[in-house]
Design a protein around this nucleic acid. Structure first.
Length: 426
RNA sequence: GUCCCCAUCGUCUAGCCUGGUCCAGGACAACAGAUUUUCGAUCUGUCGACCGCGGUUCAAAUCCGCGUGGGGACGCCA
């Protein structure tokens, strides 16, 4: 039975890199019908906080990375660490230095077999002895980690590359305890654009940030799974189930991967499209928290379902519809409103639209095209200025649908405002 | 400084183990064209990489060595 664990420290929010580690553990457990254990490494009591702890649990749940066991807390296991330290002391494998207990690292070369990297040989004569229990009575990281992994019968330790140089120390500890070490898989780190491991400098690194930016958990899972792993057949857009089915440690690669938000955004768009309209409406409602007519909202969502890539983009479009004021995009105004004929065309359009009883896309289009025919102009000469005048932007869904959804009053009012500004003369 | 890890398009990667099918495939981005209702949508296309040098071999992205470059670890932090 495969048993893996994710062991975060509640000394900060859940970082993209940590989440990727959690994800690979979870994927391996799921793909092997194994057990995914959550262990909170809170031995640094000065830096640990409940706020971070709660956020970590929430983020894992939001991502759908459910744990089967735990959370275990290291602060509740100090007796256990103490007793093992005592045992090593009695066996002469550790010694006291003041209040601290130190493990005497045997002078020998040690071979580690890593599932990702293959064999790694390290000369343990080069490293210092290892603190087991600190003077304040708390266990040191490498010790607590080994004891817990042993006690929790962890079979595979999947963690970041940066732990490779802990592994030889831990291996020496396993030897001293007379226990077979778990299998190790050190996965490459996630890098920022500067090729250094992801840090605050990069901007958004916490899962909460991505949630707020309107990314779907399944998109984030999909994207993160592709950093350091690939199914091998060029398939990239995958459901979580599909990833679980195809995941294998063998296909994890060794190179650090740069986090690329463009690709995440693309994948997010794909996952949004894949939602049914009902699902999409629900997701959007939860995200924007706006009070408006259900049927209207649904129509709006339908119009933008395939046009937006994040929920924030959805909200921005929605704001254009909801707000009283139009924010005019300078480039759009420059390109489509600053033209001699525009004012006249818009004035006439406004009159036509005002006369429509049933303000439907079909009727709006009919009237607009009729006007285009009478004026002997290109339809684009009416449509583009109309869009900019009403939405402030050069980009939107189909303009007739947009107008219909906006409603006659609002459209007329916005046209009036645009005409007052009199861009055509400036 | 010492030790360890890594090295294919701008980015994520396939191929590398088991050398020939690779003048290196896909995706994101970028760019161009199309769609005469735009576009950040859609479709089509273009650009673009095996870090260098030696070696092994009939044959090397693939194996070996050395360089170079990047990263990590050297805490009574985790």
């Amino acid at each position: 039975m495969v048993r893996v664990r994710f062991a975060p420290s509640p000394t900060g929010y859940l970082h993209i890199g940590s989440v990727r580690t959690a994800l690979f553990n979870w994927l391996y457990a799921r793909s092997q019908q194994g057990v995914f254990i959550l262990r909170i490494e809170d031995t640094d009591q000065k830096r640990s906080s409940d706020v971070y702890m709660k956020e970590i649990l929430e983020d894992l749940e939001w991502l759908g990375l459910k744990w089967d066991e735990g959370p275990y807390f290291q602060t509740k296991r100090f007796d256990l660490y103490r007793s093992y330290a005592q045992k090593l002391l009695e066996e002469g494998l550790a010694y006291k230095d003041g209040e601290a207990t130190i493990f005497k690292i045997p002078d020998e070369k040690i071979k580690i077999y890593d599932l990702v990297h293959g064999e790694i040989e390290v000369d343990n004569t080069l490293i210092d002895d290892l603190v087991l229990m600190k003077s304040d009575g708390s266990p040191a990281y490498n010790f607590a980690c080994v004891i817990d992994d042993m006690e929790m019968k962890v079979t595979h330790v999947i963690r970041g590359d940066d732990h490779i140089s802990n592994t030889n120390k831990q291996a020496a500890l396993y030897n001293a305890l007379g226990v077979k070490p778990p299998k190790f898989a050190h996965i490459p780190l996630i890098l920022g654009p500067d090729k250094a491991p992801l840090s605050k400098r990069f901007g958004a690194v916490s899962i909460t940030d991505y949630r707020k930016m309107g990314y779907l958990p399944q998109a984030l899972v999909n994207y993160l799974s592709l950093l350091g792993w690939a199914p091998g057949d060029n398939k990239e857009f995958m459901s979580v189930d599909e990833i679980v089915k195809r995941f294998s440690l063998k296909r994890i690669n060794k190179t650090g991967a740069e986090f690329n938000q463009d690709k995440l955004r693309w994948l997010n768009g794909e996952h949004i499209r894949k939602l049914s309209l009902d699902e999409f409406v629900k997701v959007c409602r939860d995200f924007v928290k706006i009070d408006c007519d259900e049927a209207w909202f649904r129509k709006f969502a339908e119009l933008y379902h395939h046009r937006i890539k994040t929920l924030v983009e959805f909200k921005e479009e929605l704001d254009i519809f909801m707000s009283e004021d139009v924010k005019y995009n300078e480039e759009a105004v420059e390109k489509f409103l600053k033209n001699d004929k525009v004012s006249d065309i818009l004035r006439m359009t406004q009159k036509r639209l005002e006369a429509i009883d049933l303000f439907t896309p079909e009727n709006i289009e009919k009237e607009s095209r009729a006007l285009v025919g009478e004026l002997k102009i290109e339809s684009s000469e009416l449509i583009h200025p109309l869009r900019v005048a009403v939405t402030g932007k050069a980009v939107s869904a189909g303009v007739f649908e947009v107008l219909a959804l906006l409603g006659k009053d609002k459209v007329i009012k916005r046209l009036e405002k645009a005409l007052e500004a009199d861009y055509g003369r400036k």
